[in-house]
Design a protein around this nucleic acid. Sequence first.
DNA 1: ATTAATTATATAATTAGTTATGCAAATGTA
DNA 2: TACATTTGCATAACTAATTATATAATTAAT
Lengths: 317, 317
Amino acid sequence: MEFFDKVGKAALGSRLRLMTAVVTDDAAKIYELYGVEFVPKWFPVFYTLAEEREITITEIANEIGHSQPSVSKIIQEMIGAGLIKESAKTDDKRKNNVVLTEKGILISKKIKQQLEDIDVAIEDIIAESKHNLWAALEEWEFLLEQKSLIKRVSEQKKKRESKDVKIVNYKTEYQEAFRALNVEWISKYFEMEEADYKALDNPEEYIIKKGGKILVALYENEPVGVCALIKMNNSEYDFEMAKMAVSPKAQGKSIGWLLGKAIAEKAKELGAKKIYLESNTILKPAINLYYKLGFEKVFGLETPYKRCNIQMELVLG
Amino acid sequence: MEFFDKVGKAALGSRLRLMTAVVTDDAAKIYELYGVEFVPKWFPVFYTLAEEREITITEIANEIGHSQPSVSKIIQEMIGAGLIKESAKTDDKRKNNVVLTEKGILISKKIKQQLEDIDVAIEDIIAESKHNLWAALEEWEFLLEQKSLIKRVSEQKKKRESKDVKIVNYKTEYQEAFRALNVEWISKYFEMEEADYKALDNPEEYIIKKGGKILVALYENEPVGVCALIKMNNSEYDFEMAKMAVSPKAQGKSIGWLLGKAIAEKAKELGAKKIYLESNTILKPAINLYYKLGFEKVFGLETPYKRCNIQMELVLG
DNA sequence: ATTAATTATATAATTAGTTATGCAAATGTA
DNA sequence: TACATTTGCATAACTAATTATATAATTAAT
């Protein structure tokens, strides 16, 4: 199908669907060829019953990877066709154990030869093909169970988008964004405090002129994240990382990570050995990010912020 | 899925269906991730329209391998969603040409990035897997188009069953079968003639005692095919192959071919250089078989049978 | 110039699965 | 021991496709 070459791998689903249709259409004809009165969709259920002596509907569903209602319906059809019957041998009255009838056992014998022929026919295709579809399905089942397609795509999206994020130095034109992005999360989770207003309304005076730095993350030339490195009056720490904010609209692009890394780099350039931060444990994604960046908990410093209930430091390598 | 290992390749259809479900389920989530209001099943149709400027429903169906009603419904849904519109630019009033709307074009741009991400994600799976599912699907599409699964299985069935066919010499206990199998086809297509009754009622006297042979094909120890080698009074031919009959119930096991081969072998053992036969062209499968066995048309011999309108000979190698 | 066959589409019915939901039986827990 | 939770199953409603069939427009054939 030429179509698939043009579209690319995104058409994997469509391609699978077509192949499924081709194979299952022929499956029906194969039963006919062998003169077995049998509906192909019964096959997985039937096979399970031929193997196990007696088994419940839910167990069958789990074994063959169908939903329980699907098996439930198939069982009813097969009972109608006289291939299986309910077997009362159970103390748990919710359970509906089923077994093959005489007729079912007969058909299972008939089908045995058919299965072997199909097996040989498919083995032949495998032998004449370069790429083993059967083995590929088995392998992909495993790989997609390990990490689903949606997860893989979302990781790729993040990776690509974070490439388009630029971290730049603060300019006056970003003051509005610096203020707005911070006000957004602070007032959502806490209340704006005196110290916040000072720094956000006048960052050049309160942060940069005192020897600090502000970095801005740009995505498509819009400021979507900010973070400050604030000069401290403390014997142990030269700088505090603070006022980190990322627009909710720009989440999933690793912007926090990129800002954090850049701030740490900046601090190192300025000769710092360690940087300090204050936060609150209700901000779980933020705390997580700090750990990922290498911060560790410390205790005991004084702070002007009511909302601070966790203090951390990062030793610069 | 352990189930598949037990069942063998016959579960290829089930395995494909499960993989299709896994992939298409995630497809829906992927559109959501990218914030595109889009139903995955629209994708092949949408993609075709994004490529071609303007195209009819049937053309789309052919291109993407769906049925026409399927595309017809999808088109209606997409018109409802405002992604495409009918374009009246056609003289053939049966046709329903469709194109993307402004909104459709916008979404196609949005989706482009998404497609690239999926492409990379799937390429990554291909890279980390030993068996390339994408390439396997492509190859199997080709192989199954060349020779369908049903054809491959039916060939395998024939091959296996013809192994279970035994060709044995005539014994008195097979007289009834020899008669019945021949009467069945002769009276179906023609009328029984005097010469038929003689040979069939008393084969030992009319065939074997005169230096001829009869071979019987047994399947599951039942006689299901017969063929005679009859001594001729002719300077050119020593033997005639005649009274070949195969039970309709045993068709598809190459019994005719096995009998023909065995008769030719027998004739060679008896020192014949050529064998002769008479038939009628309305028996197309039989004539076909004779050609396959190496017989060629000849002309001019006299025959006691009304039904004879073709004469053939096989030069024994 | 009719009539028959073909083509393009739409609609209806069917298929093989899925979720969602409800009910009864069994199990766990305070 | 009573009550909440879990389990097993059936039923209903939905989904994404299919085949079968109807209708209108076009093309081919007498």
